[in-house]
Amino acid sequence: MDNIAVKVDDLTVAYNYKPVLWDIDLEIPEGVLMAIVGPNGAGKSTLIKAILGILKPIAGSVTIYGNPYDKQRKLVAYVPQKGSVDWDFPTTALDVVMMGTYGSLGWIKRPKQKEKKAALEALEKVGMLAFKNRQISQLSGGQQQRIFLARALAQNASIYFMDEPFQGVDATTEIAIINILKELRKAGKTVIVVHHDLQTVPEYFDWVTFLNVKKIATGPVKDIFNDNNLTKTYGINYKVSIQK
């Protein structure tokens, strides 16, 4: 059996005492490229945030390679939703990517040449090296998303969590991003993506989790990405033509 990268046990998360995730059990094997799908309000982002310790669950536990997240931080990179930050913040593309290296530095220590080099390499991987000194508000939506991806790459993690990386990006950027994600998988990394476009699930991902407050199903796309699970998740009769 493969290594389990992320294990979630009996996870329940509530906002103002109203549960938004109910009793989630989930095992994510190492080396998969996984989509989390579900309707709006299904708790997709919440699940990621709870795994990363950004939200406190009211019950349950999460382990990363068998240990609590606190101990495994350096193995994990996170790409929040692009809309969650203020892009008018006075800083440059390179500086944002450098933030990815802060975790390995810890408190107080400042980034040096080594961190800058890692950031420049990450920028190059996403094809944004030419924009390194650009103020971030002067970037297009797709470029901003690439900067976020570069920041995660600069963390040099084993597991990547991404919250809707394809939101508001053009087709070229979407392809560029998915190619990088596939390369990560090839390098043995685990990538977990909150995803909205059901049509592209079979093409982009090899693993999928259906979520709607409760976990509906999780497993290989080729086995479980079917009308039955889609209907259970979205509550209406769902018919997608799956290209196999």
Binding site: G53, V96, P111
Partner: peptide, 20 residues
């Protein structure tokens, strides 16, 4: 704490996930 102030002001979620 310049670095910590910067990252948590720009991106609270990232700061939290990095342990700041």
């Amino acid at each position: 704490f310049f670095k910590e102030l910067k990252v948590s002001t720009f991106d609270k979620g990232l700061a939290a996930s990095l342990g700041f």
